[in-house]
Design a protein around this nucleic acid. Structure first.
Lengths: 346, 346
DNA sequence: TGAGATAATGTACACGCGATCATTTCTTGT
DNA sequence: ACAAGAAATGATCGCGTGTACATTATCTCA
């Protein structure tokens, strides 16, 4: 049960090592007869080229690194958000015979993307959950300067033209708030996520512009902040409950916070539909599991993952190097949480 | 901007290549002075050992393959189940400086785990979502015979002693149904998953034994089958609605089906708490997002992933080879969906 | 102080493959 | 039948590292 090498196949087939290599790499010219002879020998010996040696010889690992933030207690992978993107990436890579190397990155430890590239563990990388904080921006900038194949997902940096796939969060936010306004709500609170994420700030702009476009004055006390977890939404409900007399609708920056908020406000006696309207973001599967079903903004996360993988593969395989930015469209999904209770009863 | 190699560091530090290698691999004996000289040279040149070459030289990739079933349309990763396990695996691997190679496996294409091992892309593998179907069993058996480091998660095979980490699904099921029985329910239906999964059949046994231990006759028409998706639960609701006069409680083999069923039965005018009790399985985050909150059986999926990774790492690093099977404990979590409505109102 | 032991460092090769270049075999046209 | 070109195949090297073995420097103890 030792490892079968190219030379073993060559000996059995009565050809040279180079010919075996040619058969497996489909390098022409090559006599069909020889090819069959080699394949038959390979089959008999159950030969499988050593991917490690191949990688070493070519200098290509055949892996794409996907960098995912890792928080010791919180299982970040389990959120709809990351899972969808990861699925999209996986699909595209599988189609192109690339492997997906999942790399968990602790927030505290310094980002060393360059070292990761130098180690040749992967040929390109996709960075999920990047944040606009000092250390990170510079590191990505260095990746960019050295023209390593990479792509950010759902994060852009003001003043830099990094490769990235994002979604139209400004529009999504604007549309969401506009829906509430069209429905007649006027006192609209906004539960946003951390400002290190560019899409948080984009959503804030969309929220503000929608209100002002309807001639409504902005109130800073209408703006709340969570960390995208359900728990944080639940906690914010405590603050918000104190001023529900001055709020008739809430736009939350993701579904999980929306649901946490909904549950928290329930505890304080405020019900969606009767006391306020609610709209989430991401259109995750939980939107249809709650009562009333949650209106939300669909974000093509799976597609975004696919596109990000495509961008990185194009950089690797076709040498594409010019800055690439793309914003995929989002879709407003209207469900019951943005309706008045009387409409339901009608 | 060319690649810095060991020899470059050696030249700058005025030592041999072997010494540089020794410094980086911490091979003694070694003079402290020499070590510092080499490290300083490496720092100046920004030297990073080539992981590809290291892997090739040692014959170890440093990767653990995680094999995940891939269904073109359905994004399997996004389910609580896989995400949690994956997170646990990732945690343990990161701690041991191993990388996680995610491998999507289409159900239709033949399983060739042996080839994957021969290709040396990974040093060990963890198989998620294995099914008890003809081709698969033999392939895993071969892995086992060749004593390749591997571990199954949440799947066992009758008559084989494959390495596996599972949970006490018989007990979980028994406890869940017993809870319903203690609450006074007697006409208890069971919405199970596909029988290719060993935990489906284990749960069936638990369900049956719980009923018979209470002296209740088994009714084959009480048993329904879905595929673990919410949609399948929703569809089953159509059948079940026809016989809700003869059912007062339902045990579902996972939360998603439970919620689908709940929504489907709602459409037919049957409400949890008023018309029937419901208990799910997995204790996923959606249990607390629905109304009433769903009783469920907590399965330590994250922990299971951790343990599976540990088993594989032990096989690789310490040569552990004897059959390893472990069943982690499950916990019954009682919420509102197993209470009668009148209790809530009291 | 010198010999033997031991610590420290250097030399050289293998790992399995891709790929270049050299060589042999085959084809074609007259 | 033969030359010239094309097609097919063979010999060989390099990729960057780990490591066995050879060599040299240092220490120890009488």
């Amino acid at each position: 049960m030792t490892i079968v090498r190219r030379i073993d196949v060559a000996n059995l087939a009565g050809v040279s090592e180079a010919t075996v290599s040619r058969v497996f790499n489909n390098v022409k010219p090559l006599r069909e007869e020889t090819k069959q002879k080699v394949l038959e020998a390979a089959r008999q010996l159950n030969y499988q080229p050593n991917a490690l040696a191949q990688s070493f010889a070519t200098g290509k690992s055949g892996n794409i690194g996907v960098i995912v933030p890792y928080l010791p207690k919180v299982n970040i992978i389990s959120t709809h958000y990351f899972s969808e993107i990861l699925g999209g990436i996986g699909m595209m890579l599988a189609k192109n015979n690339y492997n997906l190397l999942l790399i968990f990155q602790s927030p505290q430890e310094p980002k060393n993307y360059i070292q990761l590239f130098n180690s040749q563990k992967f040929d390109g990388c996709i960075i999920l959950g990047a944040k606009d904080v000092p250390g990170e921006k510079e590191e990505i900038d260095m990746l960019h300067q050295l023209s390593h194949p990479y792509c950010l997902v759902n994060q852009t940096f003001e003043g830099y033209s990094f490769h990235s796939i994002d979604a139209e969060h400004y529009k999504g936010s604007f549309d969401a708030v506009s829906l509430l306004l069209k429905k007649g709500f006027r006192k609209i609170a906004f539960l946003n996520g951390p400002s290190e994420y560019s899409n948080s700030t984009e959503r804030l702009k969309g929220y503000q512009d929608a209100l002002t476009s309807f001639g409504i004055e902005l109130h800073s006390e209408w703006i709340f902040r969570g960390n995208y977890s359900r728990t944080s939404g639940y906690q914010v409900a405590g603050e918000m409950a104190l001023m529900m007399d001055h709020i008739d609708a809430v736009f939350a920056a993701n579904d999980r916070m929306a649901i946490g908020l909904m549950q928290g406000l329930n505890q304080h006696g405020y019900t969606v539909g009767r006391d306020y309207a609610l709209i989430g973001y991401d259109d995750s599967d939980v939107t249809t599991m709650v009562q009333p079903q949650l209106s939300s903004v669909h974000v093509p996360l799976f597609e975004m993952g696919k596109r990000a993988a495509e961008v990185v593969l194009n950089a690797i395989l076709k040498g594409h190097t010019k800055p690439f930015q793309e914003n995929l469209p989002v879709t407003l999904i209207e469900r019951d949480s943005t309706n008045h209770l009387m409409e339901e009863m009608a």
